[in-house]
Design a protein around this nucleic acid. Structure first.
Lengths: 156, 156
DNA sequence: ATTTGACTTAGAGTGCACTCGAAGTCGCAA
DNA sequence: TTGCGACTTCGAGTGCACTCTAAGTCAAAT
């Protein structure tokens, strides 16, 4: 089976393909306790099942939303400690949720600045293509100091 | 003037306070060419003016939206090369813009997963507080393997 | 006069999250 | 039977973006 799929589970390479993580990273996650020891086949190699993949999927969401590995490890420890930690886990996720929401809001603000800057470039290009005759010395700024880059953003 | 503000510009500490960057980072940015050499006062110390701060503000937007330092340096090089590179700069910013938009979209998707997970915790807590008598063995999953964490996310 | 504290430099160190190298094992195909 | 490629372990290495150290200068306050 060249695709690494058997009824006992799938190979590390196949799991890597499905999760978007590398085999190196999958072993690393296991080493630091983010996932439990993965079941091994008769050959001693890792066999990932669907619940391994589901858990990895969730971990990946935490990572891509910016949760540090340390916090993820803490969360997993709480899971292992059992139902009594459910409240603490919820609190962790809610605090994380707030950070993600704030991050999105910040990105949206920054995007506006980026858009203004791009707009400025577009305006300048339009100006240059419609203007004939000698280019007048640009008043777009003092390049020597990077100040007032052609699309310079004003503070405030 | 203890606040580091004079008519020739403000001290590195004052600039740090205003940009949210540390004095170390301000020197670092200068060293790697993200900002031009900052004007010095008669005592040889850096004096940041408003255009320095405006430029730093823009750089910070690029950073917080995830542009790698290397790309920022490249962008700054283009600015220094003059008007002829305006097109290339616009392309850089537009490509970056696309990445930011995609990143925001991904975060919003991930946020949904997070919300579902938090919702699940809330549901479980509601269940526990309304249920009297012995807790029935949870069918929330096999804690020993981290599979189906109480709030386990199903793939698909 | 001396102490304090903010600054200066070049270069080294840190923390994070991987990522890889080396050496060895295994099953299978030619 | 001799490779091949995918796996195994452990520990070391990488790249990024800072972040700090050490040794020195300087101005103002005590």
């Amino acid at each position: 089976m060249a695709d690494g799929v058997t009824e006992q589970g799938i190979s590390i390479q196949a799991a890597a393909d499905r999760t978007g993580l590398s085999p190196h990273t999958l072993r690393y996650y296991e080493r630091i306790g983010l996932i439990n020891e993965v079941r091994r086949g008769s050959d001693g190699r890792r066999r990932y099942d669907t619940s391994d993949l589901a858990w990895l999927g969730f971990l990946t969401k935490l990572r891509t939303t910016g949760m540090p590995i340390k916090d993820m490890v803490r969360y997993v420890e709480l899971v292992r400690e059992g139902d009594s930690t459910a409240g603490a886990r919820r609190e962790m996720l809610e605090a994380h949720r707030v950070r993600v929401v704030q991050h999105i809001a910040a990105l949206q603000q920054d995007l506006k600045v980026l858009d203004r800057k791009i707009d400025n470039y577009a305006r300048i290009e339009a100006c240059e293509t419609t203007t004939t005759g000698p280019r007048r010395p640009t008043d777009f700024g003092d390049r020597a100091r990077l100040h007032g880059d052609v699309t310079g953003v004003r503070t405030g």
